[in-house]
Amino acid sequence: MTAAGVAAVLFDRDGTLIEDVPYNGDPGRVRPLPAARPALDLLRARGIPTGVVSNQSGVGRGLLTRADVHRVNDRVDALLGGLDTWVYCPHAPEAGCPCRKPRPGLVVEAARRLGVPPACCVVIGDIGADVDAARAAGAQAVLVPTAVTLPAEIASAPATAPDLLTAVRRLLAPGEERR
């Protein structure tokens, strides 16, 4: 997809924009990944809206509160210069809700909030659930593998990138190979 076809870019939070700290409710533990700020700055320079779509099952499991999630998200915003929308699923996996990735609910809601069709969004994440949620919503997906990404998830991803900045540069560079 070229920059002309990208109306918005949606990111997974943990493991994509910031270090993955399981069930983190402490803003002091937020550590942005090195490529996050430059990638977001490139999108901002092009006027492309950004958002976060994140599973936060710790709320449903009673390990953190919605207020904890909001404090952590606010810290991410402060460190990365602000994203245009935040959508998260507070449910435990067994709840069967339509918002939890790999289902499409988070992506559809983020696109709605940004005023763009899901088909014009790109979802960037680090695991197969991110890719599957994008596909289920009709959005494009880019997988940025980490140590937790399974080989099968990498093999089945429609596009991969070695890091977040490369993923965004490829989105913004028409005709450049994305795999």
Rank of each mutant, 00 (worst) to 15 (best):
A155C: 08
G81M: 10
D163E: 04
A95K: 09
D130R: 05
L79P: 00
A137P: 10
N55D: 10
P158Y: 12
T65P: 05
A7R: 12
A45P: 00
A67C: 10
E176A: 14
V87I: 14
W86Y: 11
A139P: 06
V148Q: 14
R178W: 10
N55S: 04
F11W: 06
V168W: 03
D68A: 10
C89Q: 03
P93G: 07
N24P: 02
G62I: 11
L42H: 07
A136S: 14
P162W: 11
A161M: 05
D20S: 15
Q56G: 03
E176G: 02
G25I: 05
L33D: 01
L40I: 06
P102R: 09
R113C: 11
D26N: 13
G5T: 15
R103H: 12
L106P: 03
T16E: 02
K101E: 05
V21Q: 01
L150S: 13
P34F: 04
D132P: 08
C97S: 07
R170H: 14
T16F: 08
A159N: 03
A137G: 09
R61L: 14
V21E: 07
T166Q: 13
S57T: 04
G62P: 07
L43R: 01
D74W: 09
L10S: 09
A4S: 15
E109Q: 15
T149R: 05
D77H: 13
G96W: 09
A139S: 15
V122F: 04
A36C: 11
I18H: 06
L106W: 01
